[in-house]
Each structure stands twice: as structure tokens, then as C-alpha cells.
Design a protein around this nucleic acid. Structure first.
Lengths: 197, 197
DNA sequence: GGATCTATCTATAAATC
DNA sequence: TGATTTATAGATAGATC
């Protein structure tokens, strides 16, 4: 995209292709990171590259493990409508719960502000000690709110019309046959995965 | 990335966030497409947004499933740790968010101190009315404000426009960088993970 | 091959419709 | 809201070491 408008076609030159891959992969990951940060969404990407072989984890292994388990579950979801629906319901629930959390935080901030102002103007009370102790109370209450909310969402799930399942994949019959797959397989390369938890 | 340098933090305004998501999702998918075409790699991307019941995938469900299927066959890693059930998944999630809540509230206390000082200087209160303890808090916070300001000025590119003299606490739905940053640090930013399996 | 450096191209934040 | 426009920040092709 510079010095020349890019010709959107497979780059025949090996080294040029490799260079482009490295640059663009970096840019892509940054974009994913930004999207995730700006919009607060869960996202992940998987790619087979013939250039990378060693497992690389960022920022740490445990977070990666959890996401990868999700990935692993995914294909199995196809086998059962119930499972797929269950999964999507959970996603929705989480989204709703997070919305609520956000509201609670906003409210809480307002209340704290008022309290602080009041204390300040009244000239009594110790602000530093006030919040620390009440902190746990606030968090605990939030926790309870969320949990009860989850419970109510769970009870209501049967009523809600489930979204359509993902298309089935023919698991048994074919290994993938694209040139890329074949190349990747023959090279014994592993897919690179990145995701946001 | 235009009209203004983007503030890399969770977008508090719901409609703005949604609009940004739509635009950037489109851009990301285009980038994926280009990378795939130019470098001939096999890849897929999945995004869980609160705007769609089903995750949005690139290039399409079946291809993504195929890649995931491949991925699933990858040895050990997944097998090593037992699957988390749905319930504990949500609990984990909530725990994480609550950790962030605590952090947020702590940060908010810092902002409160700043605000207290402002109030006093504005004549709505008097320094004399503060206890010694409160005074310490105010002074400490002001010190931190100044220091962090110095830090950001040091590492920030000279191009970046300086933030307002002192960070104000925003109670309402403000779009100020301060409030935005704060909330984003607590809620928006997630760790990015990528790995080869 | 990889790190750097620009000149350009592209993505996109805000504004406007 | 969503589509369109516009002005600018950001990504990156090709060159150079």
C-alpha cells in the first residue's frame, strides 16, 4: 500500500512474500488488539504460516490455555444443536452481565463522588479510610447482583427462541485439500493462534 | 485514525462503539482477505460481538470450522487441562471483571482526591477544613498526577496534544479522555494471546 | 533474511446528510 | 441508526544497509 498500489494477488517472489507476510501479520494483530480494546469484544484468529514453527504465547500461558479449550470445544458444538445454542446463550448472558456491570460502576462512581464531596464540604470524616473498607462491600454486592442476574437469565432461557445453529461440517470424509493446507502439512507446520481473553 | 488520533481505550459511548466496531470489523476482514490472498496462507478469524448472536467469522463458517478442526487435532496442549464447564467459565469471567472493578475504584479514589483539591481551590471548601489525613491524600494524588503527566510527556510523541491541566473526575457520560482511559483500563483492555500449537 | 526509512496508499474518526 | 463525505492518522511497498 505504498510506493505503489498493491496488486492483490499471490506474491510469487518467495522473499517478498515472506516480508509482506511478516509486516501484514503484525499489522493485523495490532488491528485485532485495537478492535478488542476499543469495542471490548472477544476475538480470535488462527492461521497456518509456513514461517513460524515454535509455540509462542503472549501474554501468558494460562490465559492461552483457557481460550484454546474454547477453541477445542467449538467443533464439537456442531454435533449438537443444544450445545450450540447453549454456547450462544452463554455468550449473550455474559454480554448482558457486562452491560449491567458497567451501569453499576457508573452508578457507583456517582455515589462515591457525592460522598466525597459531602465529606469534604462538611469537613469531617476520613476519606482515605472510608472507601477502603467499603470497597469490599461494594464489590460483594456487585457480585451478588451479577449472580442473581445470571440465575434469572438461566431460568428464562427456555422461553427464548434459540438462534440457528452453525452449518455442519463434514468431519470424517475429507482432510482439507487446499494448496495451503497441503503445503502446511507437508512442512509439518503448526497453526499460529492468537486471541483475546 | 482520522480527524483525531485515536485514544486506544474502551469506547464508552454505546453508539460510537457500535459504529467503530462495524467499520473496523469490515477493515479487519478485508485485511485478512488480503493477507490470505497475497501470501497464500490458510487462516480464519472469529469475533464475538454483542451485536450478533452468532460469532462473526472469516472467511466463512465451514472454512473456519475446517481450520479449527485441524487445530483441534493438534496434540497435547488441549488434552492437558480438563475442560472448564460452562458455569465455572462464567464464574472465572466474573471474577476477572471484579478484579478490574476493584482496580477501577481504587483509581477513582485518586481522582476523588484531585477533585477535593479542586473544590477547595474553587472556594467551595477550605484546606483548613480537611483533616491531616485528607490533606496527605490530596497532596499525594497531586504529586502523582504531576509525575504521570511528566512521564506521559516524556514518552509521548511530541505531536500528541497535551491533556487538560489536571484530570477532572467525570461522573456523567462524559467522553473525556480521563474517564475513558480509566474505564478502559479497568474494563476494555484485554490481554492478547497468540501461540503456535 | 532482518531492521530502518519514507513516500504513498489505505483505513477510518468525525462531520454531515 | 446507517450511508456518505472528508480530512488525517496509520499501515506498508520498496529501497537501502
Amino acid at each position: 500500500m505504498t510506493r505503489k498500489k498493491v496488486n492483490l494477488a499471490f506474491i510469487m517472489n518467495d522473499s517478498a512474500r515472506r516480508a509482506t507476510y511478516k509486516k501484514r501479520k503484525k499489522g493485523l494483530m495490532k488491528k485485532m488488539d485495537e478492535l478488542s480494546t476499543l469495542c471490548g469484544i472477544d476475538a480470535c484468529a488462527i492461521m497456518y504460516s509456513p514461517y513460524e514453527a515454535q509455540p509462542e504465547v503472549w501474554p501468558n500461558n494460562s490465559d492461552a490455555q483457557r481460550v484454546l479449550q474454547q477453541f477445542k470445544r467449538m467443533p464439537e458444538m456442531q454435533q449438537s444443536k443444544k450445545m450450540v445454542n447453549q454456547e450462544s446463550f452463554i455468550k449473550q448472558r455474559i454480554a448482558k452481565v457486562n452491560e449491567q456491570l458497567k451501569k453499576l460502576i457508573k452508578e457507583n462512581r456517582g455515589k462515591e463522588m457525592t460522598e466525597v464531596m459531602h465529606q469534604c464540604l462538611a469537613g469531617n470524616g476520613t476519606i482515605a479510610n472510608l472507601t477502603l473498607h467499603e470497597l469490599d462491600g461494594v464489590v460483594d454486592q456487585t457480585m451478588k447482583d451479577i449472580e442473581s442476574r445470571i440465575e434469572s437469565l438461566k431460568k428464562g432461557k427456555a422461553v427464548v427462541a434459540p438462534p440457528p445453529p452453525l452449518p455442519q461440517v463434514n468431519v470424517g470424509s475429507s482432510s482439507s485439500n487446499t494448496a495451503n493446507d497441503m503445503m502446511a502439512r507437508s512442512l509439518g507446520k503448526r497453526p499460529m493462534v492468537w486471541s483475546w481473553v
